[in-house]
């Protein structure tokens, strides 16, 4: 059986999701300040890395990388984390992804919660 990432449509699915997800995140007052940098292209590349990872795609990030990569984000807590997952689920729904797959993706996200929140 093919991987979740392949079932979703691989890199093309990630590309389709980046725009929608990034727009939602920028419009979400709870978390937009974390993503509102001057260099939108650079930020889009990171969104792509994030989506590839939660889609179960190929990546080289470890839990330690997730810890290092987010620890400079001041005051990051569960509320922010849940907001990201919420925007992710809304993005996937918009793209017509079924609820069973959305749950699998949320589970991948949740598996790094403690690393991302550095605890």
């Amino acid at each position: 059986m093919s991987s979740l990432y392949e079932q979703l449509g691989g890199e093309a699915a990630v590309d389709a999701a980046v725009d929608i997800f990034y727009r939602k995140v920028l419009a979400d007052d709870r978390i937009s300040h974390y993503f509102d940098t001057v260099d939108m292209d650079e930020q889009a590349v990171k969104q792509k890395a994030f989506l590839t990872m939660v889609f179960g795609g190929p990546h080289n990030y470890t839990g330690k990388d997730m810890r290092e990569g987010h620890k400079h984000l001041k005051g990051l807590n569960d509320t922010h984390f849940d907001a990201v997952l919420e925007n992710l689920a809304a993005t996937l729904t918009e793209l017509g992804v079924g609820t069973d797959k959305i749950e699998q993706i949320a589970a991948i996200g949740n598996s790094v919660r403690d690393d991302v929140l550095n605890r």
Binding site: D19, Y22, R23, L26, A27, D36, V38, M40, D41, A44
Partner: peptide, 20 residues
């Protein structure tokens, strides 16, 4: 100017245009 361009880009993206 960078400030102007960044604002235009963000506003246009949020209004629906694709980053690409």
């Amino acid at each position: 100017s960078p400030e102007r361009v960044q604002k235009l880009r963000k506003q246009t993206f949020l209004a629906g245009a694709s980053m690409q």
